[in-house]
Amino acid sequence: MIAVENLSKRYGEQAAVDDVSFVCTPGTVTGFLGPNGAGKSTTMRMICGLTPPSAGRATVAGRPYRSLPNPGREVGVLLDASAQHPGRTGREVLTLAARTMGLGTRQVTEKLELVGLGGVAAKRRVRAYSLGMRQRLGLAHALLGDPVVLVLDEPANGLDPEGIFWMRGLLRDFADRGGTVLLSSHLLREVQEVADRLVVIGGGRIVAQGEKAELLASTGTLVRAREPHRLRAALIAAGITVAAAADGTLIAEAETGAVGQAAADGAVVLTELRPAENGLEELFLRLTAGETIKESLR
């Protein structure tokens, strides 16, 4: 179990994370979502004891991470797949970690085989690994101590479609056996497939959290135009709440008829108008619209 209580992190006047609270329970995969710079990685680093919080606390398996006597046996962590010694082989990386945790070589072989890095791949030096192979090695490292909790930041980055499908099954099986998974990823469709709960962060604050089915039950209208800024202004003038993505797509909190009428009143030519699908991408756009726009302007 992971418990985050009123967690904050400030750098001078800037609040990277602001009063964040959520719980990840055993037997579930929690998708942790937000735009770049929203505070996801900082939150995960605080959970894992790598960044001290300015306020609040986070516990894993009932204790702060730094208080765990042998963290790798209880919490598997993958925050940066490139944080591995390039001159060591995959087997050497895991063997050193196993010795640190007080494990034998059997677990090393098992985990290398589990992630598809057995045989010749285990003998190659990390500098010769592709990004996808480094991600697999990072997952093997996270699973090495047979932990009950996994904290994973963008674990699918660099994996091919087959690898992403494999990882989805791996995480689902881990949770179904009673494990707790906190998963941050920009691959929203994959998160939608595997997650039970969602926590969405924007601007350092939680903007939504809850069961996936409940959060995806909301409705709206997806609309596009050749002049998205004029469309957005017309919808706002009509009193319609909108969320905007960097590509000009708008999600309007109104029925299609009202949206079409607002566009017509503003003399805006539409290229697409339809009910928004109750999918994670649409939810993400609605909840993080301001942060998405800010990111596109940088």
Rank of each mutant, 00 (worst) to 15 (best):
I2N: 13
V4E: 08
Y11L: 15
A15D: 13
V17H: 10
D18S: 13
D19E: 13
D19L: 06
L33P: 09
P35D: 07
K40N: 09
T42E: 06
M44Y: 10
L50R: 06
G62L: 04
G62R: 09
P64R: 12
P64G: 06
P64Q: 10
P69N: 02
G72T: 03
L79W: 07
D80M: 14
A81P: 15
A81S: 15
S82D: 14
A83N: 12
H85Y: 10
R88C: 14
A97M: 10
G102H: 06
L103M: 04
T105L: 10
V108G: 01
T109G: 01
E110C: 03
L112H: 11
L112N: 05
G118S: 03
V120Q: 08
A121H: 06
K123P: 00
R124N: 05
Y129D: 03
G132T: 14
G132M: 15
L137F: 08
H141A: 11
H141E: 09
V148M: 07
V149Y: 11
V151C: 05
E162H: 07
E162F: 05
G163Y: 01
W166H: 04
M167H: 04
R177T: 09
L183K: 02
H186Y: 04
L187F: 10
V191S: 12
V194M: 01
V194L: 01
G203C: 09
Q209T: 08
L216M: 14
A217C: 05
T219G: 00
G220A: 02
L222K: 11
V223I: 11
R224S: 03
R224A: 02
H229D: 10
L231M: 02
L235S: 03
A238E: 00
A244I: 04
A245L: 10
G248P: 04
T249H: 07
A254K: 06
E255N: 11
E255F: 04
T256C: 06
G257E: 00
G257C: 00
A258P: 12
A258N: 11
D265Q: 14
G266E: 02
A267P: 00
V268F: 06
V268K: 08
E272G: 00
P275W: 03
E282L: 01
L283H: 13
L285C: 13
L285W: 11
A289E: 00
L297G: 09
